[in-house]
Structure formats: structure tokens, C-alpha cells
Lab assay of single mutants.
Amino acid sequence: CEICHEVFKSKNVRVLKCGHKYHKGCFKQWLKGQSACPACQ
């Protein structure tokens, strides 16, 4: 996960249209302050 830098250990992964992958919880937190993929912006 590019947000928390932890390895994906479960199926709790969100894959965006751009192809980047994040933990669902991390991405949900990210969206509270941002509106785009962290890696693409």
C-alpha cells in the first residue's frame, strides 16, 4: 500500500481504475482530504 507502506496481507484491497492498489481503510482515510489517487496526482 503506497499510503501506509505495509504489505497487503488480506483481500481488503481496493484497486483503482488507474491500476494502483491500496488497503480499503487507507484509501477511505485518504479520500477525506484528497480526491485523486495518491500515486497519480
Rank of each mutant, 00 (worst) to 15 (best):
C1S: 00
K28A: 15
N12A: 06
C18E: 02
I3F: 15
Y22H: 05
E6Q: 15
K17M: 06
V13I: 15
V15E: 09
I3H: 12
K21S: 13
E6S: 15
P38E: 06
C4T: 01
A39E: 07
L31G: 12
H20M: 01
C18Q: 00
V13F: 11
A39R: 08
E6A: 15
K21G: 08
V7C: 07
K11M: 05
C40R: 02
C26W: 01
K9W: 01
V13R: 13
Y22C: 15
Q34M: 10
P38K: 12
Q34W: 06
N12V: 06
S10V: 03
C26K: 00
K21C: 10
C1Y: 01
V7H: 15
K21F: 14
N12R: 14
S10I: 03
S35F: 07
Q41R: 15
G33F: 07
V7S: 12
C18H: 01
F8S: 04
L16H: 03
L31Y: 07
G19F: 01
C37V: 02
S10Q: 04
C1K: 03
A36S: 08
H5S: 14
P38H: 09
K9G: 04
A36R: 08
K24N: 04
G19W: 02
C37R: 02
K32R: 07
K32S: 10
S35N: 08
H20W: 00
C40D: 02
R14D: 15
K28L: 06
S35M: 14
G33Y: 04
K11D: 08
V15W: 07
C26L: 01
V7F: 02
H20Y: 07
K9F: 07
F8A: 06
H5V: 04
A39L: 06
C26E: 03
N12I: 06
H23A: 02
E6R: 15
C40Q: 02
I3L: 05
A39I: 04
H20C: 09
C26P: 00
F27G: 13
C37M: 02
Q29W: 04
G19M: 04
K32E: 14
V7G: 13
K17C: 07
Q29T: 15
H5M: 09
H20G: 00
K11S: 15
Y22W: 08
K11L: 10
P38Q: 07
F27Q: 11
V15R: 09
G33N: 08
A39M: 09
W30M: 09
K28Y: 10
K9E: 02
W30H: 15
H23T: 02
K24T: 14
H20V: 00
Q41W: 09
V15M: 09
C1A: 00
K21P: 08
F27S: 11
E2A: 07
C40E: 02
S10C: 07
A36Q: 08
S10Y: 04
H20N: 01
F8K: 06
Q41K: 14
C40N: 03
K28T: 10
V15S: 09
E6G: 13
K32H: 11
G25L: 07
I3R: 04
S35E: 14
F8E: 06
F8Y: 05
H20K: 01
I3C: 02
C18D: 02
F8C: 08
R14W: 05
Q34N: 15
A39V: 09
V13W: 07
E2W: 07
H5C: 14
K9V: 01
K17I: 09
N12E: 10
Q41N: 11
K21W: 07
C18M: 00
K17S: 11
S10A: 05
Q41M: 14
H20D: 01
L31K: 12
V15K: 04
L16I: 13
G25P: 15
V7Q: 13
Q29D: 14
K17P: 11
L31R: 13
C4L: 00
G19H: 06
K28N: 15
C37G: 03
H23K: 02
K32C: 09
A39W: 04
C18N: 04
K32V: 09
R14Y: 06
K32G: 10
K32Q: 13
H20R: 01
K28S: 15
K24Y: 07
C37Y: 00
H23R: 01
E2S: 10
C40L: 02
K9T: 03
P38F: 06
C26A: 00
L31H: 10
K32W: 04
H20T: 01
K32Y: 05
K28C: 07
Q41L: 07
A39T: 12
C40W: 02
W30K: 10
F27E: 11
N12C: 05
G25A: 09
L31I: 11
G19Q: 04
H23S: 01
S35K: 09
F8Q: 03
A36F: 04
K28M: 10
R14E: 12
K11A: 07
H23C: 11
H20S: 01
N12H: 12
V7M: 14
S10M: 07
R14T: 13
C40V: 02
K9R: 04
W30S: 10
V15N: 05
K24H: 08
G33A: 14
Y22Q: 05
F8H: 03
K21V: 11
Y22S: 11
L31S: 12
Q29H: 05
S35V: 11
G25Q: 06
E6Y: 06
I3M: 09
F8I: 13
R14N: 14
Q41P: 12
C1I: 02
L31A: 14
C40F: 02
K24W: 07
F27A: 13
Y22N: 05
V7E: 10
G19Y: 04
H23D: 07
V7R: 14
Y22M: 15
C4Q: 00
